[in-house]
Design a protein around this nucleic acid. Structure first.
Length: 271
DNA sequence: CACTCTCCCTGAAAGC
DNA sequence: TGCTTTCAGGGAGAGT
């Protein structure tokens, strides 16, 4: 669920921890999607947080010791930042005690996320980052580039938007919202999209994701941003989760593509 | 190589 | 009300 906007707002919230020292680390699970490296405590203790950024949906916390933490939130992960007096709650798997009484907590009921650590110089060689596509908000994402990538594809555009090797950062919710905004049917195949439509699509990608960031990301059920407050972009969903509702006089329907739900309005998304 | 499906896990919501 | 079933936003990896 955390898609690019949720990750972006999370790192904004984490900026408070810049330059702080990691004083203690406790781990309360072995199994996230990846095993947490056994030496992670030794590496982290006494290091200082030097930068916080994201690569697509991956949160990168750079340390002053030339190592970087890679955190992925999976479907239900979140980072909480609390002050002292924090009490461990269910699914708090990884806890960093920082200087100035700040505590950074990774909580993930479904354990689909992961935490890993790697030399900063080798970051892009990490097995989950090495094949990552162009960031959805990058200026380098141009209509021409995307056209070249998908002009022979017989995969529906909805699925293409979810393919992190092509464009990185879009998840299932925003894929539906973006296609509605662009007035493009999720069923259209990559090779059926002319460059003018792809231009329109890229505009919608930027518009929808930037708007969501402005609203603090969205939260359904399990996402809260780093200070624990809920984002509220979900109130702005035009089609996602609105099966049967009408936009003007046109109904929103739900279809399943590749095992995932897609919401769209056939009358308003004809191409 | 490109594409499709299943599965990891827990909890919320829907169904009965 | 309470028990059971279904479904979920990510994404790797196996299978075709």
């Amino acid at each position: 669920m955390p898609e690019l906007p949720e990750v972006e707002t999370t790192i904004e919230g984490l900026k408070f921890t810049l330059k702080q020292k990691i004083q203690k680390v406790t781990i309360h699970t072995k199994k996230l999607r990846l095993n947490i490296p056994t030496n992670i405590k030794n590496i982290l203790i006494n290091s200082k947080i030097s930068n916080i950024r994201r690569i697509a949906k991956y949160i990168i916390i750079d340390l002053d010791i030339k190592f970087s933490l890679i955190i992925h939130l999976g479907m239900s992960g979140r980072l909480k930042l609390q002050l002292a007096r924090y009490k461990k709650t269910k699914h708090d798997h990884f806890i960093c005690y920082l200087s100035k009484n700040k505590i950074l907590i990774y909580n993930d009921p479904r354990k689909f996320g992961f935490i890993d650590i790697i030399e900063t110089g080798n970051l892009l060689k990490h097995k989950y980052l090495i094949n990552i596509g162009i960031d959805a908000l990058s200026r380098k994402l141009t209509a021409k580039l995307l056209f070249e990538k998908i002009k022979k594809s017989e995969v529906p555009i909805k699925q293409i938007l979810l393919d992190q090797k092509i464009i990185a950062g879009i998840g299932n919710i925003y894929a539906s919202e973006i296609l509605f905004d662009a007035k493009i049917s999720p069923l259209v195949l990559g090779n059926q999209l002319e460059i003018s439509l792809i231009m329109q699509l890229i505009k919608s990608i930027r518009r929808i994701l930037n708007r969501a960031i402005k609203f603090g990301g969205s939260s359904i059920r399990d996402y809260t941003s780093v200070d624990g407050t809920l984002g509220n972009f979900q109130n702005n969903f035009k089609v996602y989760g609105r099966e049967g509702e009408k936009i003007g006089k046109h109904k929103v329907i739900k279809v399943i593509q590749y095992g995932r739900s897609t919401f769209y309005c056939p009358n308003l998304q004809k191409i």
